[in-house]
Simulated scan of single mutants.
Amino acid sequence: MTRVVRGRPGRALRVVVAALAGCGAGVALYGLSQVNSGYAFAIGGAVLGVFVVLGLDLYRRTARLTEVRITVPQLSELTFVVNNDAQQVAWQLFVETVTRTSTQQLRDDEGRIRESLTSLYGLFATTREILKASRPSTGAEGLTVESLAVTLLNREIRPFLSKWHPDLGEFEKTAPELPESAWPRAAECRADLRRVQANTREYVLAFARLAGVENPQIMLGA
């Protein structure tokens, strides 16, 4: 279950950014008043340009705040406050998770467990790369898009892979001529896989809400 509360565009934040930029520019221009006028205008223009760029960058990263309340498996309702950068990270995570076969439920008579395990490994690695490349964000009580992604990896995907990858690998090694359905633990693994897939889909929907995606259930085939 996900609820979104929009509309905290940050007028006060824009005022603060403008005030800080103006204050810094004023201090810089006052210092320049002590310099020969021949260089003052050139240097003053450069300093003012720097303040404008920094102010715009700060506004881009912090403005348009959106408050999102999310409930995911084994977690209570959480409240996130995301900005443009956080929404972009959430969008990347959503795209990666929604396009994986690991999020699609398999019946006992379809698909291969190995394919799903490989997909989960790929999702784990790709998520880590997205988090490493993104700029750390901040949120209320430490709740960020990144923390939600790490929770998905450590609470759902890592334990499942650690449990089943060695067992399936051992079967494939000792009986390479047998089909996967002959693995004695195939039914047990598929049942556990369905549980992880169901939980992962909830995280996918959470990433979609944080990114501002409308009707993400359609993309999931739900």
Rank of each mutant, 00 (worst) to 15 (best):
A187Q: 13
N199A: 12
R185G: 00
T200Y: 03
R194Q: 11
E180K: 02
L193P: 06
A198W: 10
G212V: 03
W183L: 01
P179H: 10
V213A: 02
R190W: 10
Y203H: 12
T200G: 01
R209P: 00
V196W: 06
V204N: 01
L205I: 12
Q217D: 14
R190T: 04
R190V: 08
W183D: 12
W183I: 00
L205G: 01
A208F: 03
E188C: 00
V213R: 08
S181N: 06
P184M: 04
Q217I: 10
A187W: 09
A198H: 09
L193V: 03
E180G: 06
E214L: 07
P216D: 13
P184W: 07
T200K: 01
V196I: 15
L178P: 00
V213D: 04
A187P: 00
E202W: 06
C189F: 10
S181M: 02
A206I: 10
T200V: 04
D192A: 15
F207N: 09
L205A: 08
Y203K: 01
D192G: 06
F207R: 03
R185V: 00
F207K: 05
C189R: 00
A211E: 12
D192H: 11
Q197K: 00
V196A: 07
E177L: 02
E202Y: 07
A182K: 10
D192E: 15
N199H: 15
D192F: 06
